[in-house]
Structure formats: C-alpha cells, structure tokens
Design a binder for these strands. Structure first.
Lengths: 265, 265
DNA sequence: CGTGGCCGTGAAGGAATCTTGACGTGGCGC
DNA sequence: GCGCCACGTCAAGATTCCTTCACGGCCACG
C-alpha cells in the first residue's frame, strides 16, 4: 500500500484544469471540490477520490471554497453541513445562486439530512457520515452523470478516433490499427501515451506532461520511465524505430508527434 | 380515506385523451401520478413538480390510483414501496399487467430497492427517500425520455432485444437464448451486466461504468465484484471461458464486448 | 426454521506490464 | 575533435492487475 497524497499540498493553481483541457482532448477527469473542517477527512478524500479518476481539491472553509471556485472550473461540490463558523447549507445556497454546480452535502445524521433535502433545493444529494469511500464515489458519479448530460453538440464531444499516416487509433475500443488494417496490440500506458501525442500533434510535450497523461496514478516516477515506453511505442508504430519519423526526440525538451492528425468524432 | 380532495382538478379539455399526447408533438406536459400515504410528501410533490412542467396528481392509496388511471391518461407513476395496507410493488405489477406506463418506486432504503429492482420487473427505476426534488425531477425526465418513443425518430425507442453471434437476449423476458435456441439461465446481475455490454458494443467499459450500468444505483460495491460476475457470465456464454472471445479484458482499462450487436425494437 | 441460490469479499496464484539501474551511443558546446 | 550529458536500449526485479476459488451473508422459498 502507498500513502502518497498526505503531504502533497498543491496550490490551487497547480490543479488548474484549463491547461489540461485545452492541450489534451483526452477525457479530463471531473473536478471535485470538497469543503470540510476535518483535516483527516480531507486527506482521506484526496487519497481516495483521485484513485477513481476524480480530480480532487479540498479546503477547510467557505472562504477558501469561493476562492477556488473563482480560480478554476469545478464539476461538483462536497460540502460539510456543519462547519465551525458557518452553515454548509448557506454556502450551498450561495453557490446555487450564481451557478449550477451540483452539490452533495455531507452530514452527520440521517434526520438532519431529511430536513435538508425536504424543501431545500440547495443540494442535489447528501451522504451521511461516516460514509464508505465507495459510496461517496458512487454518489458523486451518479450525480455527475445526471447533471452532465454532455451536450450533444458535436464540437464538444470527445473524439472517437484519431487518424495519422494511415493508422487509426480507436479511442472507444482502445485499439490501434495499422495502414493495412491489422490490429496492433498496445499496453495501457502505450495507448495513453499515444493518445496524448495525438491530442497535441506537432507540439513538443515534456516528459512530465507525458507521464501525467500516460500513467493513471503514481505521480512520483522517474522521468526516464517514459523513455522506455516511448521506445516500445516506437517499435510498434515506426517503420524503422532506430530512425524515428513519427515520434521525434527534442533533445532537452521532450518529444513531438510530427505527423498531421485528423480527428474523428 | 382522503378522497379526491387532493386530486388536481382540471377541465376535461386539458386531460384530453391519449390521442392528444401521442398525436401532436405539441407541448402537453407529461402527467405524473404519485401514490404515497404521507400527506406532506404529496404536498411537496404537488408543489414542486408542476414548477418543472410536470402535471401532477397525488393520491394516498392504490384504490385511488386505479380510479385516476381509469379516468385520465398518465405518463408516469410514482409509487411508494410501503403503503400502509398494501404493497407498492403489487400495485406496480397490477398496473404493468395492463399497461406500459413507466413506474418509479419510492423507497426508504437503497438495499431494499435494489433487491426489489433485481427480482421484479414491475418498476423502471426507483428513488430513495429522502430525495432531493431535483433528483426526482431528473429521474422522471430521464425515464420519460427513455420510454417515450419521441416524435423525432425511431432511434430513441427502448430496445426490445439484442442479437449477437447467433445469441439473443430478450430484454422484456430477461431471457438469453444460445445459437441453438436453447434458453440459458442468467442470474440477475449477469443479465444486467450483459445488457450493459450489449448497449455499448466494441467499446471499452471501465468497471465503474459497468457497475453503474448494471445496477440501477447500487452504491457501495467493490469494483472487483464485477470481475467475478464477468467470470460467471463468461462461463455461460463463451465457447471457451479460459480464452474469452466475446468479453475481452483490456488490462488496466476495463472490458469490451467485441462482437457486433444488432438491436431489435 | 432449514435449504438453496445468488452475490460480494478476501486471498492465492500467476501473468502482464512497469520501473529501474546499468551501459551504450550520439549530439552538441567548447 | 573531445568530453559531457541526454537519450536509447536492455534485461532483470518489482508491481500491478486479473483470474479463480472458496467462504459466508442474505434473502426467497418451502
């Protein structure tokens, strides 16, 4: 077991999804903002939620919450009903007044929750403490699903596939086919790495960026680990992997995917 | 018993029979009929649902419900699972026998509901109390969307059955038949899992997605529970379950149903 | 109340995949 | 040219991930 996120205090700016959203067309994980005065709970959340592909920021007070909301997009809010010097419900209402961010209230007792849910429109769901992390994740997911019907607009839809130099990478099926139409097996990280490249063609990507996109977890890995994955990927897609044409090394900077890429939706 | 007092009285013209609803794409708001013995909840519903463009009638007993059903068209039913002297589920079944009105069960506990949904085909969804009004509206809407063929095209209708590789899965009967025409027994979770796959063929589904789609909302289950169900399902439908062809593992990502699937409506 | 089916959990085992360290090699600045 | 440094390559471990089995709770049915 690992206990990584404990000390990992990232400034809000580090979490900013704007960058990721524009650069990678890969599905950006939803951003969860949790407000609770209990540090232990915050730690738990930061440890657990990301494992389930939920980007997580935690704060202790309503003021901090508002600050974060201003700075970056948030997809769902978790708010403790009883915060030391403020009322979670009031916070929720305040948010509701100005946005449609879905809100889950964390509460101690069921009857308390009853009251909250009854006539209040401030919250969309509640979870009673103590809750199992699984349950929380499930509820967050469920609520996101309900509230993000994901506009049918084809412009915002996630890409279905990429094409480059006769190859095709099918994102739904997670499958790569070569110009002759044969399937080429990719491991998970190879697939992720390749889609990171295809989402940002003709652009130099640093190792860090690539790592972040190709490894789902483990934030602390040697940069060099990416080299090996690049190598393996090259062996699978380069005509001559000793003389790479598609994925070219930018010495001192990172790597570039050189070919034009077309996006299928 | 409280009698029509609560039944929202409208001029007959507004209630105009089925033809108005089916024939014209005119904006006749859907008619919701709710059955619950709690007067407070009924008030809440009558107050809230109409604000969201849902014509709402509430009653306290099954008898009243039946009377309303006879008198006017109803687009969706909300039924409390535990009514004082009757069984909400029995009511639902009774309705189902003679009509196709979509039904949402209101229930107190999640596990209670899950069990009910599993075994019974009487309801289409359920909502656990206390629920947020928003959630209820969302579910009502979702269910209406699912069940109403929708003027636009034939594409939105709910599937009746799926075919794949000679097999057929009948959704109404919840029955699977193999290429030779023999029935293959599926447990409830196997059935749900399989239909989740068939609804999204050739697409890698994560465990979370499968969980979400195979339980209505069973919260709080171990991701890995899926694995076991997959195994059990494979034993029933794979020619050689040690070398799966239909449901293929995508390491690090999820599972895919590889075969082409045709939908019968 | 017993019995049986269903389903979730834990653990064991094994396979696939990643990481790491070592070493080779080629580019680039001086 | 020379040497340093960054990258390429390789092949062990290390680790994660999946499969499978077995157990036990739970509910339905009798």
């Amino acid at each position: 077991m690992m206990f990584p996120t404990e000390m990992k205090q990232r400034p809000p700016s580090a979490d900013t999804p704007a960058k990721a959203a524009t650069e990678a067309a890969t599905q950006v994980p939803p951003h969860v903002l949790a407000v609770d005065d209990d540090p232990e709970l915050r730690n738990l959340l930061r440890e657990f939620l990301p494992k389930h592909d939920l980007r997580t920021t935690t704060v202790a007070t309503g003021a901090e919450m508002l600050r974060v909301l201003e700075q970056e997009p948030v997809d769902i809010l978790l708010i403790d009903l009883r915060l030391p010097h403020e009322d979670g419900l009031a916070l929720a209402r305040k948010v509701r007044d100005t946005s449609a961010i879905p809100i889950i209230i964390l509460t101690g007792k069921t009857d308390e929750a009853d009251r909250v849910m009854g006539l209040e429109l401030a919250a969309d769901d509640y979870v009673t403490k103590p809750f199992s992390p699984r349950e929380l994740v499930a509820r967050v997911r469920a609520l996101l699903r309900r509230t993000q019907p994901d506009a049918g607009g084809s412009s915002t839809a996630a890409p279905r596939a990429y094409r480059f130099a006769g190859w095709e990478l099918n994102l739904r099926r997670r499958r790569l086919t070569n110009p002759s139409g044969d399937a080429v097996e990719l491991t998970n990280s190879e697939f992720n790495l390749l889609s990171a490249f295809l989402a940002a063609p003709q652009r130099v990507l640093t190792r860090d960026q690539l790592l972040e996109r190709s490894r789902l977890h483990s934030l602390e890995v040697y940069d060099r680990a990416i080299d090996v994955t690049i190598l393996r990927l090259r062996r699978k897609i380069e005509p001559d992997y000793t003389d790479p044409q598609l994925i070219v090394t930018e010495r001192g900077a990172g790597y570039v995917f050189t070919q034009p890429v077309s996006v299928l939706r």
